[in-house]
Amino acid sequence: MTLEALLFYLFAAIACGSALAVVLTDNVVRMAFWLVMSLGAVASLFFLLEADFLGATQLLIYVGGTVVLLVFGVMLTATGPYVQIKTTPAEMFLGAGVGGLLLLVLASTVMGINWENDVAHALGAESEAALAADTTVDQSGTTGRPLGLAFVGVRPDAVGPDGAATRPGYLLPFEIVSVHLLVVLIGAAYLARAKRRVEPATDLLS
């Protein structure tokens, strides 16, 4: 067993086990803890998948930001000492059954595909466009720069034979998502702040 495989199994076990623990735990704070473990393990898997920038983003935004926000929410809305979510055994049983079935379907499908031979071959050999863009992320794992370039709309990693980019640049979503974040910020600030009432609005269409 190679070191990479060993690390994969370690992090995969942590990710799956913690995810399961999130479902099985009744206490919200412990759920948050297990969620952190799971998301952290996923970040490690990102590092294993040679996506170091993404792994760091996952740690910074998800684990360090979103989960802190969630825990903050738990603390602000806790009525009792520790918020317990009671799940009846019947619900748990039903959830386990449906979830198990879903997992079975997904797993059997995913494991049934021979990616290297069937899909990659079919797509790689026969599709002109796919062939041109047949550059998986380079193995150095230094994806920060290509990602940054893709965000400003340049794709040096996917250049066709004629020198034109075969994959889209992501300038538009990169810019427009900032508008979205601004709007979300306005909305969240509105909902969270106390109502300031100066005077009732009486004048319409003034």
């Binding site: 979205h180 306005i186 909305g187 600030a189």
Partner: peptide, 19 residues
């Protein structure tokens, strides 16, 4: 939306419309 909340409301409305 009353006068105080109007900027918030219209921002949300227009933001959703952009989407």
């Amino acid at each position: 939306p009353d006068r105080d909340d109007a900027p918030d409301f219209y921002s949300l409305l227009m933001g959703a419309s952009v989407g």
